[in-house]
Amino acid sequence: MTATATGSGAGTSRAGLGVTALWLGPALALIVGVVLYPAVELVRASTSDYSITGLRKGAAGADNYRRVLEHPDLSTVLLNTVVWVAAVLVLSIVISLGLAQLMSKEFFGRRLLRWAVIVPWAASLVITARLFMLLLDYNYGILNQVLLSAGIVDTPVDFLGDDRFTMPSMIGVGTFVTLPFTAYVLLAGLKGIPDDVYEAARMDGASPWQAYTRITLPLLRPALMVATVLNIIYVFNSFPIVYTLNDRNPGFAHDTTITFMYKLAFKSAEKSVGMSAAAGVFNVLLILVVVLAYLRISNWKEATDA
């Protein structure tokens, strides 16, 4: 091993190509071997002309991309996606900050709390989505039953069929299933902050709020960043919640880019895997732009280089 701790900056070392390949090789092999090839296939599919059966009939050039861009529901879908991603992301980060704090404290029942929080994560999204479909239904939904008997509403609320409530319902469930992951990443971050830092703050006479904003939040930054970046991607690509809660609604009124992509291939009159692949490529580019923008705004390189 040639590299020694002689590095510049914050004490990192420089490494040559051979060493790099040794440490990163397995990861690169997996990524290139398993992810890259299908990604290339996706691009190839997006420039191909397919029959409704999936049979490739020839090259399509940019036709699929054009048809996606000209799709009458595209603007609705994009708007839905922005609302969905922004709302779920913000809600889950904000709530998780509190939740992680709570989970990090020592109290009777903490273990129970930690186990309970893991459950929505442990249950598969497909099942959780189906479960909430039952809970939120107009006729047999238990939530409506509760609201009715508590006198909060006079008639049931059509959470999944009424256009005013569909997106908020999806966002609620989407946030609920995103919380465990986010809270645990933040909890791990909190636990990475050494206790003596707080000790020092206490000596300096900092109030709890000051300690939180001046010490906890800045030190939590790497964890927050990981949680945010990955959540952007996961929420963008979150399929089961949007698809299942929305599957009674005709058309694309409440679809996001990912369910739009799926419906283009299998559920709508377009039934075109080429168009769907083009939408898939757009989806990746969209995520890429959002993530890069976020990384730039949040000074990601500075944070990870530190």
Binding site: A21, L28, A29, I31, L36, Y37, E41
Partner: peptide, 22 residues
């Protein structure tokens, strides 16, 4: 460039696949 070369070498088997994909 060197990074790309290394990546290509490691992922060689996948690239072979790509070549015969069609």
């Amino acid at each position: 460039k060197r990074f790309a070369a290394a990546a290509a070498a490691i992922g060689g088997f996948a690239l072979t696949l790509t070549a015969c994909g069609g």
